[in-house]
Every structure is written in C-alpha cells, then in structure tokens.
Simulated scan of single mutants.
Amino acid sequence: MKNGSKTQDPDGLLIRRWVPELTDVPDARIHTPWQMSSQWWREPGAHEHEHRRDRR
C-alpha cells in the first residue's frame, strides 16, 4: 500500500483529505506515519475533534 500511495498520491493530498487525523503529518512522513516518533502525536482524538469542529 505504501508504494501505491507514493505513486498515485505523491503529495499526500488524498490521504490528508480522507484521513483527517493525518492532516498535520509532515510531507516526509505522510506515506509512513507509523514511523514517526511518539512525541509528535498528540493525545488520542485531538485531530478528530478539531476537524469535527471545523466542519460545522
């Protein structure tokens, strides 16, 4: 899956659109967010809450 996303969505635009929790992931890690340090991630659900508020 990782290679397919790099080929079909090199900038991660679709990933960020359809997986809002990954909106703030740096470009260098958008295709491999599981490799990011745990310090980067906020508390669980923080991204989801922000995006729900923005959609209202």
Results as ranks from 00 to 15, higher is better:
residue 54 D to A: 14
residue 37 S to V: 09
residue 51 H to V: 13
residue 8 Q to S: 13
residue 12 G to Q: 03
residue 40 W to N: 10
residue 36 M to A: 08
residue 16 R to H: 02
residue 7 T to G: 06
residue 4 G to M: 02
residue 26 P to R: 06
residue 44 P to L: 07
residue 23 T to C: 13
residue 7 T to I: 07
residue 13 L to A: 09
residue 44 P to D: 06
residue 26 P to S: 10
residue 10 P to I: 04
residue 54 D to P: 06
residue 16 R to C: 04
residue 27 D to C: 10
residue 37 S to E: 11
residue 4 G to E: 03
residue 26 P to E: 02
residue 43 E to N: 10
residue 49 H to K: 14
residue 18 W to G: 08
residue 7 T to C: 09
residue 33 P to C: 03
residue 21 E to C: 02
residue 19 V to S: 08
residue 50 E to L: 12
residue 56 R to L: 09
residue 31 H to V: 01
residue 42 R to I: 09
residue 45 G to M: 02
residue 40 W to Q: 08
residue 32 T to N: 14
residue 35 Q to I: 09
residue 51 H to E: 13
residue 23 T to Q: 14
residue 19 V to N: 03
residue 26 P to K: 11
residue 15 I to F: 05
residue 17 R to P: 00
residue 28 A to R: 11
residue 6 K to N: 03
residue 41 W to R: 03
residue 5 S to A: 01
residue 49 H to M: 14
residue 25 V to L: 02
residue 15 I to E: 00
residue 47 H to V: 03
residue 19 V to G: 04
residue 46 A to K: 15
residue 2 K to F: 09
residue 22 L to N: 00
residue 44 P to N: 03
residue 37 S to M: 14
residue 56 R to W: 15
residue 50 E to H: 04
residue 33 P to I: 02
residue 29 R to Y: 12
residue 44 P to W: 09
residue 6 K to R: 06
residue 25 V to E: 01
residue 26 P to M: 10
residue 20 P to M: 05
residue 34 W to T: 05
residue 36 M to K: 08
residue 9 D to M: 09
residue 27 D to F: 08
residue 44 P to R: 04
residue 9 D to W: 04
residue 13 L to Q: 10
residue 36 M to T: 04
residue 30 I to Y: 00
residue 12 G to I: 01
residue 42 R to N: 11
residue 41 W to T: 08
residue 14 L to F: 08
residue 34 W to Q: 06
residue 35 Q to N: 12
residue 35 Q to K: 10
residue 48 E to K: 12
residue 33 P to E: 00
residue 6 K to T: 01
residue 1 M to H: 07
residue 47 H to D: 12
residue 29 R to E: 04
residue 25 V to A: 00
residue 4 G to H: 07
residue 34 W to K: 02
residue 33 P to N: 07
residue 46 A to Q: 15
residue 11 D to A: 12
residue 56 R to F: 14
residue 40 W to A: 05
residue 45 G to I: 04
residue 1 M to L: 08
residue 36 M to C: 10
residue 18 W to D: 12
residue 46 A to F: 15
residue 6 K to A: 00
residue 8 Q to G: 07
residue 28 A to E: 12
residue 39 Q to H: 11
residue 12 G to Y: 00
residue 8 Q to R: 12
residue 13 L to K: 05
residue 10 P to T: 01
residue 20 P to W: 02
residue 48 E to V: 13
residue 43 E to I: 08
residue 27 D to N: 14
residue 35 Q to R: 11
residue 16 R to I: 05
residue 48 E to R: 15
residue 38 S to T: 15
residue 22 L to C: 04
residue 37 S to D: 15
residue 20 P to S: 08
residue 48 E to T: 13
residue 30 I to P: 00
residue 10 P to F: 02
residue 38 S to K: 15
residue 2 K to W: 10
residue 20 P to T: 07
residue 3 N to H: 13
residue 3 N to Q: 15
residue 17 R to W: 13
residue 26 P to W: 03
residue 21 E to W: 05
residue 46 A to V: 15
residue 40 W to H: 12
residue 34 W to R: 07
residue 33 P to D: 06
residue 18 W to A: 07
residue 45 G to L: 07
residue 27 D to Y: 05
residue 46 A to R: 15
residue 28 A to M: 13
residue 50 E to D: 13
residue 29 R to F: 11
residue 16 R to D: 02
residue 45 G to S: 01
residue 13 L to M: 03
